[in-house]
């Protein structure tokens, strides 16, 4: 074992030397802003990475759209399973000359401020995290008014419910998902103050299993349908699949989240139960940030809030199940935009 350890140490040292020699190859990496003609976008994902059919994929779609229009390339990085190397992802991207560098997910909010300060020549953005108090001029927060979109989802659920009993399934009980709950409850109560609303989270704060556990999503939603709810809204990432299955099994309906899940769910039996989805247009936000960057129009040091007024959040209409209540939904939407209704972000 001792020999093996020595061997490892030796090979590490060798490797360090070896990469010294190849120095000429990768050139100006550490030099900071090699802001040439080519757009080089660095994209660091939330745990789960590409292929989650939701949040990360949506961010990628935004980058893709921007590159299609402006040219350039993207380097994607996923963190390790426990997300402990997030800071490394961002610094490596910045060091290799990628600019802008975008962190997808509020988990980057904790560390991106320090890294932005270390690489003042690089432009950073973080999705779902506020940066206003960090005071970094080269950092932008891309925020969403999830509570506003969820308000409309709650209103739609209350308008369509026949039992005056609806449900909400959250993935993880953290402040971000609580915004969804707060808006949903407020929207439902705005339509019917006496409505019964079951709310439940799959896992407690700090345990992220609730975003990827369809089996538990199904059990939780099934409980709500059995108790008399007929429409359940989920903000539970991959666990939402289980919510749809429970709705299909008990003849109820469900509301999807983030992307238009009517289009992405795949299975026609599940498609039929998806009444609408609360859209969170991460793709639009990322795309417009990149095009702002290419025009040199990023102000930095501030948050860009994507809400109903900018169509950053909203309700999908595919499937046509909420066509009959569209006028009421539009009224609520207008009232929120005009500030006549203030939607709470904390339940």
């Amino acid at each position: 074992m001792k020999a093996a350890a020595l061997l490892l140490a030796g090979s590490m040292a060798l490797a360090a030397c070896a990469s010294d020699e190849t120095d000429t190859g990768s050139g100006d990496g550490g030099g900071g802003s090699a802001s040439g003609d080519e757009l080089m976008v660095g994209l660091a994902y939330d745990t789960g990475g590409r292929g989650d059919k939701s949040f990360n994929d949506s961010a990628y779609a935004g980058v893709e759209a921007a590159i299609e229009e402006l040219g350039g390339e993207v380097q994607e990085l996923s963190p390790n399973d426990d997300g402990s190397d997030r800071a490394e992802l961002l610094t490596q991207l910045a060091e290799q000359g990628y600019d802008p560098v975008i962190g997808v997910g509020f988990a980057y909010g904790e560390i991106i401020g320090d890294i932005a300060a270390e690489y003042p020549e690089t432009t950073f953005a973080v999705v779902d995290s506020s940066v206003e108090e960090m005071g970094a001029e080269n950092l932008t927060g891309l925020l969403f008014a999830e509570e506003e979109g969820s308000f409309l989802a709650g209103a739609a659920a209350a308008l369509k419910s026949e039992t005056d009993h609806i449900g909400f399934v959250g993935g993880v009980e953290n402040p971000l998902i609580q915004k969804f709950e707060a808006g949903y409850v407020a929207g439902a109560k705005a339509v019917n103050p006496d409505i019964v609303i079951d709310t439940q989270y799959i896992s407690p704060a700090g345990d992220f299993s609730g975003f990827g556990d369809p089996a538990r999503g199904k059990i939780v939603a099934q409980g709500m349908f059995d108790a008399g709810a007929d429409i359940v809204y989920h903000a539970a990432g991959g666990s939402g699949q289980g919510v749809f299955e429970a709705a299909a099994a008990s003849g109820g309906r469900a509301i999807g989240v983030d992307s238009d899940q009517y289009e992405t769910v795949g299975d026609p039996a599940l498609q039929a139960v998806i009444m609408t989805s609360m859209l969170k247009r991460v793709d639009n936000a990322v795309e417009s940030f990149i095009s702002d960057y290419s025009e040199g129009a990023v102000e930095g040091g501030q948050d860009i809030v994507n809400d109903l007024s900018t169509d950053g959040v909203g309700l999908s209409t595919s499937g046509g199940q909420i066509d009959d209540i569209q006028t009421q939904i539009d009224e609520f939407r207008q009232q929120i935009i005009d500030g006549e209704i203030e939607v709470p972000a904390i339940p």
Binding site: A15, S19, T22, D23
Partner: peptide
């Protein structure tokens, strides 16, 4: 995998 970076501080 054995590429520890170009500059001494990266290594």
């Amino acid at each position: 995998m054995f590429d520890f970076g170009d500059s001494p501080d990266q290594q």
